[in-house]
Nucleic acid binder design. Sequence first.
DNA 1: GAATTTCAATGACCGCCGTCAAGATCCGCC
DNA 2: GGCGGATCTTGACGGCGGTCATTGAAATTC
Lengths: 248, 248
Amino acid sequence: MNELNKPVHRSSECDLTKEPVFRGLPKESIAAIKRICRVRTYREGQTVIADQTEPSFTGCIAEGILRMQKTLPDGRQHIVGLLVSHDMFGRVFHHRSNFDVEAATNARVCCFDRRALEDLLSRDAALERLFLVNVLDELDAAREWIILLGCRRVSERLAAFLLILCRRWTNVHGVLSGNADRIRVHVPIGRADLANYLGTRPETISRAVHALADDGVIAIHDSQTFDILNLPRLVATAGNGGFGLERP
Amino acid sequence: MNELNKPVHRSSECDLTKEPVFRGLPKESIAAIKRICRVRTYREGQTVIADQTEPSFTGCIAEGILRMQKTLPDGRQHIVGLLVSHDMFGRVFHHRSNFDVEAATNARVCCFDRRALEDLLSRDAALERLFLVNVLDELDAAREWIILLGCRRVSERLAAFLLILCRRWTNVHGVLSGNADRIRVHVPIGRADLANYLGTRPETISRAVHALADDGVIAIHDSQTFDILNLPRLVATAGNGGFGLERP
DNA sequence: GAATTTCAATGACCGCCGTCAAGATCCGCC
DNA sequence: GGCGGATCTTGACGGCGGTCATTGAAATTC
């Protein structure tokens, strides 16, 4: 498929300045963060950070999708979040990670050595501010997720999930395309992952997807790509989950 | 019951220095934060921050329990978190709250004027660091919650909830008492709230609680107070939910 | 102390979904 | 092109839990 077997470290090609996350930072802050940035490349299925280990770096996704998950003693695993372009992960000022982070697709990640980053943040208030606001956003995302999981029916959770994709991942490369009439959503994970993500089983996901298609709310382009035909009815299906995620 | 109808502002009695949250801060940071702290008192049921409004302050709970929730268009509400002593809430550097914050019990809250706090944080790196780490902890708590909600059976979620109470709220006033043999847990919310919290209905909560009691895992002291008789079996009941929340 | 309200507990019914099993589809590989 | 594996789909069955209704207990009011 491709030649990558382990993360490739490259000291170049860190185009952080273009990332909206770093928009508005003073020039010297950008220069400083760029200096400690190393790009790593992961291929699908690789582990980025293992549960209960102390990661040596904090990252910001340049391309691709990572999956945060907890592998449970009974072997099952539950996904607690998906990370897409521009999302940050890894805990500054905390030692152990409480989750696995795995590549859900091939991914490129800007990595900051944790120690160097902590030193930098201590000296650069603007940067620290940026990280603080970023974590606050993650917190909001996590709470949106909690509301989604509070939906009782799988169909509601699925609809709410598609809405989150539409709302939060607008312009994230490869997820959304099409116009308002026929929004095309590409779900970047398979049925099994999606089932873990929504707290159910693959069979039930399959049924729920086809139920939405039978009702004319969506059309199935392929097993991971849907066209949203009737957004209002999708919102109605989501019920509770369709709300709770308004953004400024 | 008591004479409080609206929050009472008091400029005294802010004992922040004793709170573990602020432990380790330089003296001048503590003095500065104390200077902008005002204590407010809320009675059970009062709204602290309304959804989609711009709160004028950020708070740290001195006593009592607050409930973060989203009221949904169909009138139901879903709780996304409980806040106990020493927990902080309210979003620095962000304008609108995405949730309601209500007093679940009578509560005393240390409030920091948002504008003043933001100014302060800009000038005090140690304080900003403290807030950053604090938000990171909230994030972990939210993700523990996501794992809990990923449990399929209500009995698992209930067991996991009780374990979170034991684990995270040790020494929080009024929640835990007793020794290792017979841990007494006081659940600070009623069945309806608990049902919202666990993504189910009050009747099902009732059944699950009594099922645990019939199995000898817990004893019901009163409808909101349980004695944990068999911790290992409670962990076993929690299954997945019993894990995912190890702390350093 | 009786009445009203609120909350918890219990039973009956049934629908959603977890489970198991089988078939279909797509993929890489030889 | 044929084969084997992984993934997705579909069906049948049964149990958990959502819903409704009723009873009981506790708190507040008059």
